[in-house]
Amino acid sequence: MVDTHCHLDAPEFDPDRTAVIERALAAGVTRQVVPATIAAGWPGLRDVCASREGLHPAYGLHPMFLDAHRREHMAQLEQWIEREKPAAVGECGLDFYIPDPDRDEQAWYFDAQLKLARDFDLPVIVHARRAVDQVIAAIRRIGNLRGVVHSFPGSQQQAEILWEHGFMLGIGGPVTYERARRLRRIVATMPLEWLLLETDAPDQPDAAHRGKRNEPARLTHVLDTIAGLREIAPQELAAATSANAERLFGLPSSLQSG
């Protein structure tokens, strides 16, 4: 399996990051995409991903941390992308759920990162909370993009529009909650080629792990839930979603030996 959205560099993992990676491998999670949130975190994220095979960095500026962002960070991000050759641009996007969001400032950073992704021909990892329509509008406006809307929170219609524009849906812990009826309906019937698995660890734990620190080994619970909703074998779902991740992020088909 591929955990396509895990903040493995987060301080929550500082005490036991090696053990977390080992548990993930034991659970069959052989690769992780690790998206950034703020510019100050890029060097540490790079070091974490360089420490083991199968950890793939993405660099970006998250919309929830505007206080940490500066306009000059965009020029630095372009340099990082050119030098480091990451798997994706992100995490970036729009978040209108937070109190008093500065929508214009969020949009400036989002548009700038979409343009970088387009110009470098990289996928983009998108955060869209209470802002799916606005995210779709930006994707349409910039054009020639591909990527994933992580922790997809939208409707069937919004999902279909995203697929039309080359965007996959990242599905994680929320789908394991029975109350997430709309999301579960979408996941049960959506075209498999647009589906990615994720944990968003240390956040968004599955229903059986509610209130606890999430980690990539918990991806098996997401896998089993979605396989049950789709009435297919977990192994089939794991193979298909791993192939999707390889295609989108340009990942090698398996870990190299050694």
Rank of each mutant, 00 (worst) to 15 (best):
V2F: 12
L8G: 01
D9R: 09
A10F: 13
P11I: 04
D14F: 07
P15H: 03
D16K: 05
A19V: 12
V20H: 02
E22V: 09
L25Y: 13
G28C: 09
T30C: 02
R31P: 10
A36R: 04
I38E: 11
P43W: 02
A50F: 05
Y59N: 04
G60C: 09
H62E: 08
L66Y: 04
D67E: 15
E72S: 13
M74P: 07
W80T: 00
W80A: 04
E82K: 09
K85G: 06
A87S: 15
A88C: 13
C92W: 06
L94C: 07
E105S: 09
A107D: 12
W108V: 05
W108N: 07
F110Q: 09
Q113I: 00
L114N: 03
K115R: 14
L116Y: 00
L116M: 06
F120V: 00
D121Y: 09
D121T: 07
V124G: 02
I125R: 00
V126E: 08
V126K: 10
H127G: 14
R129I: 07
A131H: 11
V132M: 14
Q134W: 08
Q134K: 15
G143Y: 08
V149C: 14
V149Y: 12
S151E: 13
S151A: 15
F152D: 01
F152S: 01
S155C: 04
Q158I: 00
I161H: 11
L162H: 01
M168W: 15
L169V: 06
I171T: 07
I171N: 03
G172C: 02
G173E: 02
G173Y: 11
P174R: 01
V175D: 01
T176Y: 06
R179H: 12
R185G: 11
A188T: 08
T189K: 14
P191Q: 09
L192C: 06
L196Y: 15
P202S: 08
D203V: 10
Q204M: 15
Q204S: 06
A207D: 01
H209C: 10
K212S: 05
N214R: 08
V222C: 09
V222Q: 00
V222H: 07
D224G: 03
I226C: 01
G228T: 13
E231S: 07
A233F: 01
A233Y: 03
P234M: 04
A238L: 06
T241N: 11
L248M: 05
F249G: 11
L251V: 11
S254R: 14
G258F: 04
